[in-house]
Simulated scan of single mutants.
Amino acid sequence: MVCCCGKEKGRIMHYFFVSPEQINGDKIEVTGENFHHMIDVLRIGKQEKFEVCDGKGKDYLCQIDEQKPSEKRLTACILDTYPSENELPYRLVLYQGLAKGKKMDEIIQKGTELGISDFVPFESKFCVVHLKEDKTIEKKVERWQKIAKSAAQQSKRGRVPRVHHPIMLSNLDQLHGKSLIAYENERDYSLKAAVQKWDDQVDQINILIGPEGGFDEEEVSILENIGVERISLGKRILRTETAGVVLCAQLNYALE
């Protein structure tokens, strides 16, 4: 459980994530390190209100009801319940070419802050990282999921994004919703032009970002055959860890 800040009629409050299992009726149980953070670090008093999110899109206004310091446990009383207001009105899925080093960490952190709901890493022709050769991929996915949770807590998200197990791009044969691929060889068709054509309500947007080596022309052609539109992000070539962040920010500006 990590603290951020919430608001109640303009008043700043502490904001926490807990698991749904900690919520029972009109009570929320906090234990261990979470108890230490609230009581010993933040020194939240019994009359002080704070917000809790269950990670599933629901927020709770709470006050401490009972403390058991010897057990490092407290019970909070739920005063009010309401939907989280900080999620995008559409599902935003990032298909990201596997990148080397700590670049994936940065992509997942910043993408979470911008509202991405799912991260789907993939291997493609020009990837430096190869799934068959990477014996630590399971541990990496676990670490990426922790990064997503931490970033969701800090940005006061209502849900924690899911980091999927990496796939082979060649196995991707269908996509739901609108799909865009940022392609360095596309010079004329912009995101603005693509969005202006969306005359119906969008419930899901998939964005595809290539690895350090970019996309192969044949890969782009295959993706276009399943409905993916290729777009330009401008005259300059962006790094893989930059392109997804830029595209997400532009989409949010245009649609949110």
Rank of each mutant, 00 (worst) to 15 (best):
M1L: 12
E8Q: 14
H14Y: 14
H14W: 11
Y15H: 15
F17Q: 04
S19G: 03
S19Y: 05
P20F: 08
Q22N: 12
I23G: 06
I23Q: 05
G25M: 04
D26G: 00
T31G: 00
G32F: 04
G32V: 00
N34T: 10
F35N: 07
H36N: 12
M38E: 02
D40S: 15
D40F: 01
K46I: 12
Q47R: 13
E51P: 00
V52Y: 02
D54V: 08
G55I: 10
K56R: 14
K56V: 01
K58N: 05
K58L: 08
L61G: 09
Q63F: 00
E66L: 12
P69C: 08
P69L: 11
P69D: 05
S70M: 12
L74D: 02
T75F: 13
I78T: 07
T81C: 11
P83N: 07
L88E: 11
P89S: 10
L92D: 07
A99D: 01
G101C: 05
M104R: 09
M104Q: 06
E106Q: 11
Q109S: 12
K110M: 12
G111S: 04
F119V: 06
F122G: 04
S124C: 14
S124I: 01
V128A: 13
H130A: 01
L131I: 15
L131W: 03
L131H: 03
K132V: 04
K132T: 12
E133P: 00
T136W: 00
K139G: 14
K140E: 06
K140T: 09
V141S: 06
E142C: 06
E142F: 09
R143N: 13
A152V: 09
S155T: 04
K156N: 12
R157D: 06
G158K: 09
G158I: 10
P161S: 07
R162W: 00
P166M: 08
P166Y: 04
I167C: 04
M168R: 14
L169Q: 08
D173Q: 13
Q174C: 12
Q174A: 03
H176Q: 14
H176S: 15
G177H: 10
S179M: 02
L180R: 02
I181V: 15
A182D: 05
Y183E: 02
E184A: 13
N185C: 02
D188P: 00
A193E: 15
A194G: 01
K197S: 13
W198G: 09
D200Q: 15
D200N: 13
G214V: 09
F215L: 10
E217N: 12
E219D: 12
I222Q: 13
L223N: 05
N225G: 05
I226L: 11
V228C: 08
E229T: 13
R230A: 06
S232H: 06
K235Q: 14
L238V: 04
R239N: 11
R239D: 06
T240S: 14
T240A: 15
T242K: 04
T242M: 10
A243G: 06
V245K: 00
L247C: 09
A249C: 07
Q250N: 07
N252Y: 01
